[in-house]
Computed example of a mutant assay.
Amino acid sequence: MTPSIAFIGVGNMARSIFSGLLSSGYPADKILGTSRTTEKRAFYEAEYGIKMLADNQQAVQQADVVVLCVKPAQMQAVVENFAAQVNADQLFISVAAGVELGALSHWLNAPVAVVRCMPNTPSQIGAGMTGLIANERITDEQKGWVSELFANVGDSVWIEEESQMHAVTALSGSAPAYFYRFVEAMIKVGLEQGLDEQSCRKLASQTMLGAARMIAEVDEPIAQLRNNITSPNGTTEQALLSFEASHIDQIVAQAMMACMERSKVMAQEFSA
């Protein structure tokens, strides 16, 4: 049986997931979403052929799987509003940063399977990375289904300890912004050297894309991939020596720790 899926709060992430599902052949009549805005409901129904509702309670009543895509600060109020409609056979998936499994289970007030995930924005183009963790009520079949769900927007990794979600946030959830910032700095230098912006953007972005693919697809240590293009006294070596002189490991560690610390604070703010 193909489960019916309700997306509570349709925005960019929800659209990324259900558009990936539709592209993979998932039936549109098994997908519904919610939005308080009449225009948004009309748009998604016309553009994607899915059913859109204004009422979260109605959506939950019609779904086998409920994907919670509302903002973290709104999660408690939204979940408690439809909690009376929850049944034990349903699966709940939250994409809200910082909202832990215990809080979600408490607000749902029912013995249901809950998955917490940390996707990232490249999911919008099918190149996302998602960290996943579930409560003790999830079945192996449900875990497999969730993995297939996120395969439609990229790839995923299951973790065992919820405390590790802070590291997942720093490694993948927030990380695209680090790379964007790095490329911005590269492009700025290229412009200063007389190249046009389009050429700079293409040179830098395709190089980053190629490097990422080599890390993912070539069976060599990352250090070796780096050494393969670092000739003694060459141009690459000089750039890398500059990074080391600026203590690049410390810079990256400080940034990631700042990200993780904020993630921990958010978990406390949104606890049950």
Score class of each variant (00 low, 15 high):
I93C: 13
G190Y: 03
T139P: 03
V99L: 08
P111V: 06
H247S: 00
Q250R: 04
G173Q: 13
Q224L: 00
A167I: 00
K40M: 01
L132T: 08
A267E: 11
E39F: 02
I187L: 08
P3F: 12
T235C: 14
S16M: 07
I125Y: 05
N56T: 14
E136G: 06
E39K: 00
A170I: 02
A110E: 12
A84K: 15
A63V: 15
Q238A: 12
Q164Y: 09
Q76Y: 06
L191A: 09
A83T: 15
P221G: 04
E197K: 15
S271M: 10
L68I: 15
Q58F: 09
V168W: 06
M266V: 09
R137C: 10
K188V: 07
T207D: 05
P221D: 03
G194N: 09
D64I: 02
G9C: 12
F92A: 12
R15Q: 13
I229A: 10
S147N: 05
V66C: 04
P232S: 09
N81C: 12
A42T: 14
V265R: 03
L108V: 08
R213W: 10
E148P: 09
V265Y: 13
A113V: 00
G173E: 10
D64T: 00
A134M: 04
A223D: 12
A216P: 07
F270E: 08
Q198P: 00
L191G: 15
F270W: 14
A97Q: 13
A42I: 13
L32W: 12
Q193T: 11
W145L: 01
G128P: 07
A110L: 01
N227V: 10
F7H: 04
F43K: 03
A59N: 07
A134H: 11
E148S: 14
M257Q: 11
Q193H: 11
E100L: 08
T169E: 05
V146E: 01
Y178L: 03
A185W: 03
